[in-house]
C-alpha cells in the first residue's frame, strides 16, 4: 500500500468533496468577485487580446486562480510589447535545441505540473517545496520589462510573477548566504537538447546572483507571460527574470534554489569565461569579444526597418540598479 508523506500531498488535493462537486459554480462566483475587485485600487490583469491562432497556456487550476488575481504592470513609455507569437516562438532554450524555433517545436511535452523546487544551503527553511506551496502566500503581479539577449536582439515582455525578495525573505537565508544559485531541470528524456553530442554546455544549466541582486525589487520569479501561464518554451513553470542583465542570466524551468557563501557556477561563464561573465550586466561599452553590444535589434524587426536601437546601460534600469556596482570595474567584472 502506498502511503503518501504529508509533504507529498499538495494542498490543492485536499479539497472537501462538497466544494469539489460545486467547483464550477464556485469558480464562476470567484470570477464575478474578481471583476468587482478590478474596480479597486490595484488594476487587475485583464486578458490580452491574442490572434485566434495563438496557442494559450492556461496552466494548472491553482495557477489560473492566482493569475486572475494578479495586478497589472506599468507600461513602459514609448515602447511597444513584442507580439505574443514572437515572445513564445523565438527564444534560446538550449535544452530543446540550438535554433530559435526549437524551443517552441520541442518543448510542448514538458511536464510542468506538479513541479518541485528544492531549497537548500544557507537558509533556515530548506526543503522540497511544491511550486504551488512555494507561491501560496504571494500575490502575482505583472512586470513589463525589456529583455536584452547577449546576441544583440531585444524584446519587451509582460511577465507575471513574484518579486524574488519576497520569496527569499520567507526562506530565511542565514548570515552566510552571499549568493543564490539556481538550477534548471535536467531530464534528457524531456529535454532533447541535453542529449546533443555537439553541445559545449554542461548540464544542468545553472546560474547565480549576488544576494543584493537577488533581493533587488526588480528581480522577478516569473510564472506567467501575457496574462497566462508560462509556455514551456519560455521556461515554465518557474523562471528568473533579471531585466538589467543579459537574457542568459534569467534561468528557466528552475528546480533548485541554493543559498551559498561562495560564488556559484554559472553555465555560460563556465563554457566561455572570456565571453560571458558572472555578472553579465547589459553594458553598451563592453563588447562581446566577437560582436558589438553598443546596439540591439528590437524585435520584431522588419526588412524595411531593422529597428536597430542603441543599447542602454543596465538595459535602461541604471537609475534603479547602478548603485549595486558602485566602485566595481565593469570592464573586469563583465
Amino acid at each position: 500500500m502506498l502511503i503518501k508523506k504529508p509533504s507529498d500531498i499538495r494542498s490543492s488535493e485536499i479539497t472537501p468533496e462538497s466544494v469539489y462537486r460545486r467547483r464550477r459554480e464556485l469558480l464562476k462566483a470567484m470570477l464575478a468577485g474578481g471583476a468587482l475587485m478590478a474596480a479597486g485600487p490595484a488594476r487587475a490583469l485583464e486578458r490580452y487580446e491574442l490572434p485566434d491562432e495563438a496557442k494559450r497556456y492556461p496552466g494548472p487550476e491553482w495557477l489560473q486562480e492566482k493569475l486572475r488575481a494578479a495586478s497589472k504592470g506599468e507600461v513602459i513609455e514609448g515602447e511597444d510589447l513584442t507580439p505574443y507569437r514572437h515572445v513564445t516562438g523565438h527564444n534560446n532554450f538550449y535544452e530543446f535545441g540550438l535554433a530559435k524555433e526549437d524551443p517552441k517545436a520541442k518543448a510542448q511535452g514538458l511536464k510542468t505540473d506538479p513541479w518541485k523546487v528544492e531549497v537548500s544551503g544557507e537558509c533556515s527553511k530548506p526543503g522540497s517545496y511544491n511550486l504551488e506551496d512555494l507561491l501560496k502566500p504571494h500575490e502575482l503581479e505583472e512586470r513589463i520589462y525589456r529583455l536584452r539577449c547577449v546576441e544583440a536582439w531585444s524584446m519587451v515582455i509582460p511577465w507575471v510573477g513574484v518579486p524574488l525578495n519576497k520569496l527569499i525573505s520567507r526562506l530565511e537565508p542565514t548570515g552566510n548566504a552571499k549568493f543564490v544559485e539556481f538550477t534548471t531541470l535536467h531530464d534528457p528524456s524531456q529535454m532533447p537538447g541535453q542529449k546533443s553530442f555537439f553541445s559545449t554546455l554542461n548540464w544542468p544549466y545553472s546560474e547565480g546572483l549576488r544576494m543584493d541582486e537577488a533581493m533587488h525589487p526588480l528581480t522577478l520569479m516569473a510564472v506567467g507571460v501575457y496574462g497566462d501561464a508560462l509556455p514551456p518554451q519560455n521556461g515554465a513553470p518557474f523562471r528568473l527574470v533579471v531585466p538589467w542583465k543579459y537574457g542568459f542570466k534569467s534561468i528557466k524551468s528552475i528546480v533548485s534554489i541554493r543559498f551559498t557563501e561562495q560564488m556559484p557556477r554559472a553555465t555560460w561563464n563556465e563554457t566561455a569565461p572570456s565571453e560571458y561573465g558572472f555578472y553579465a550586466n547589459v553594458n553598451p561599452q563592453v563588447d562581446h569579444p566577437r560582436w558589438s553590444q553598443a546596439t540591439e535589434r528590437r524585435l520584431p524587426s522588419s526588412l524595411f526597418n531593422p529597428n536597430q536601437i542603441d543599447t542602454r546601460m543596465f538595459n535602461g534600469y541604471a537609475d534603479q540598479v547602478a548603485h549595486l556596482y558602485q566602485g566595481m570595474d565593469l570592464r573586469k567584472w563583465y
Binding site: 514572437h86 523565438h90 520584431p300 524587426s301 531593422p306
Partner: peptide, 15 residues
C-alpha cells in the same frame, strides 16, 4: 518568404 512576412521575429538575422 520575405514578401509573405514569413521570416519570423528576426528577419534580418534569418536573411
Amino acid at each position: 518568404a520575405a514578401y509573405s512576412l514569413d521570416l519570423g521575429a528576426d528577419p534580418a538575422q534569418t536573411i
